[in-house]
């Protein structure tokens, strides 16, 4: 082999090696660290794995929020209209967390069917419903009205929904 070819071959091999390493690493990181979203209904149906990091979401049920004043422990239920899910959380809820608001929580499903959240997200916008939540609400008769109301709110306030986009 001429030196140029030898060099080319070594470059090709190096690139191949780096690429396969990258693929292996990415797929490993993916397998460990992807959170799948489940609706309360699919959790009630037993589709979600126990004690694995998942995300759930729904509308916070009225009068379901109860706080322990000494430990900052809080529990509340979310619903997609079909099923309710009880969520436990310790810490400070986001500014826009309130009853009737759509939220997404990240955490693990426990043996007793409740959910322990590490993180609760409510968007910084009063008309916003997390896309997953509105998707699981869609096609659900009980919540169609609410959805219509949300859509109406979105239509009348298009920019309120758009304003945060500049944040990047």
């Amino acid at each position: 082999m001429t030196p140029t070819r030898k060099k080319r071959l070594s470059i090709v091999l190096l690139v191949l090696f780096a690429a396969s390493m990258a693929v292996a690493l990415v797929s490993y990181a993916f397998k460990e660290n992807i959170d799948v979203y489940f609706s309360p209904q699919s959790i009630a149906n037993g589709e979600a794995p126990l004690q694995r990091m998942i995300r759930v979401g729904g509308i916070v049920v009225d009068d379901s929020v109860s706080r322990d004043n000494d430990t900052l422990k809080v529990s509340f239920s979310v619903t997609d209209g079909e099923a309710d899910l009880k969520i436990h959380f310790q810490g400070i809820l986001p500014d826009l967390f309130r009853e009737g608001q759509g939220i997404v929580a990240r955490g693990q499903l426990q043996q007793d069917g409740s959910f322990t959240a590490d993180e609760v997200l409510a968007k910084h916008d009063e008309t916003y419903t997390p896309p997953e939540v509105s998707a699981s609400l869609a096609g659900n008769l009980k919540y169609d009205q609410e959805k219509a109301a949300l859509d109406a709110a979105e239509n009348t306030k298009p920019i309120a929904g758009g304003s945060l986009q500049t944040i990047e």
Binding site: L25, A29, F30, N33, I34, D35, V36, Y37
Partner: peptide, 12 residues
């Protein structure tokens, strides 16, 4: 519906 969280990014 998946979400890729900070652990993925940090790992790599």
């Amino acid at each position: 519906k998946f979400s890729v969280g900070p652990p993925y990014f940090n790992t790599l």
